[in-house]
Amino acid sequence: MTMFSALTSPSVHAMPRIDLWWVPRGVVLGLLAFVVFGPLVNLVLWTVAERWYFPHALPAQYGFSYWARVFAPRGNAIDALTTSIFVALLTVALSLAFAIPAGFALARLKLSLRGVILLAFLIPQAFPNLPVYVNIARLFYQVGLNGTVPGVVLVHTTHGLVYAVWIATAAFASVDAELEQAARSVGATALQAFRDVTLPLAAPGLLASAIFVFLESLDEFTGSYFVGAPDVNLLPLLLYSASSGGNYQIASITALLLLVPSVAFMLVVERFLKADVLSKVGK
């Protein structure tokens, strides 16, 4: 009986089973990390590279002299950053001034062409930017808007309205209409119910739409180039000038200046734009 048990029981010294699935998964994750973070690492290296030439895989000399050159009075980076932020804030204000009433109407009113109206805001994204901005620049020259901040703000707003109106509509649709009716039943006017009930509840979604518009304006190049250059100096234009001139250090520093607020604001969007708001987009 003892011999039979020893023969049928599993061996104490059996080899452990090795899971080899971690090899392809590790390779895939490594490639994904390289695709995502590789360009960012290269960008950061260029910002501190004093000398970097073939065949060196890493910079031959590190330093911060190009940072000093970018932020010097003649570097125009501070002026470009200030103008870019100013234009982006004006774009946000103009977009929200239109998107809040439009989004509320699209969320609350039973419009037969509601879907068509929402799709109409996608038209600026449906056509190639280059021929559109060439014609806009020609029209703006005739009315005196080319090379001005208001002209650039108007062009940026045409793109920002896509995010502003769609997200504002979803934000107002996520607010229960019965809360407005309850406020009206205790004597509040329609404006008071909107101001004290609906608007605060929709504020996180509106904040997210404002951040999307801000980032879209901050990164917009084609419209800024054809409508604003050379009179309106923006960071994307400075980035283009440095890149086309082969000055990769200054171009990388400028790109990093654009990247930092984008990442910071996207973290804010992820916090405030909840799933119940996203589920209302396009409905």
Rank of each mutant, 00 (worst) to 15 (best):
F140Y: 07
V143I: 15
H156T: 06
L161G: 07
A183K: 11
A99D: 10
L154C: 01
L145C: 09
T157Y: 05
D79W: 04
A182K: 12
V149A: 00
F64H: 06
A99R: 05
R108D: 01
N129P: 06
L106G: 07
S65W: 04
A99T: 05
F64Q: 08
Q125S: 14
I136W: 01
I78G: 13
A168T: 05
P131H: 11
L179H: 12
L113A: 12
R114Y: 01
N135R: 10
V162L: 15
G144S: 07
G63S: 12
P131Q: 10
G63M: 13
G151D: 10
G75R: 04
R138A: 05
F172P: 03
A99L: 00
A72N: 14
L179R: 14
L118T: 04
R138E: 12
I117E: 07
A102Y: 02
F71Y: 07
V92A: 02
A183R: 11
A171K: 03
I100T: 03
H156Y: 13
L130Q: 07
S84P: 07
L130I: 14
V132G: 05
G160C: 03
L113D: 07
A170I: 00
F98H: 06
L145G: 03
A97Q: 05
Q181R: 15
G103T: 02
I167Y: 01
Y163T: 08
I85C: 09
A170N: 10
L90H: 11
A93F: 00
R114H: 05
W166H: 13
I123C: 11
V87E: 08
L130G: 03
A93P: 00
S112T: 11
A182E: 10
H159I: 12
S84C: 06
T82Q: 14
T157F: 02
Y163H: 13
V132C: 07
F127H: 04
A97H: 03
K110Y: 00
I117G: 05
A77F: 14
L81I: 13
L109N: 10
A102P: 05
A182T: 15
L154M: 05
I117K: 13
P73C: 08
D79F: 11
F140V: 10
R138W: 00
V87A: 02
Q142G: 03
I117Y: 09
F64W: 14
L111W: 05
G160W: 04
Y62W: 15
L154N: 01
G63D: 08
P101E: 09
A105G: 14
G147F: 00
T158I: 10
A77S: 12
L145W: 02
T157E: 08
A183E: 03
N146F: 00
L119A: 12
W166I: 08
F121I: 01
L94I: 05
G147H: 05
N146I: 04
G144R: 13
F104L: 15
N76S: 10
L113M: 12
A105R: 12
E178M: 13
T158S: 15
P128F: 04
A126K: 07
F86K: 14
V143C: 04
V155T: 10
I123M: 14
S84D: 07
Y133N: 02
G115K: 11
A177Q: 14
G115R: 13
L161W: 09
G144I: 12
I136F: 00
D176M: 01
A137I: 06
P150Q: 10
F71I: 10
F86G: 11
Q125V: 04
R184P: 03
T169Q: 14
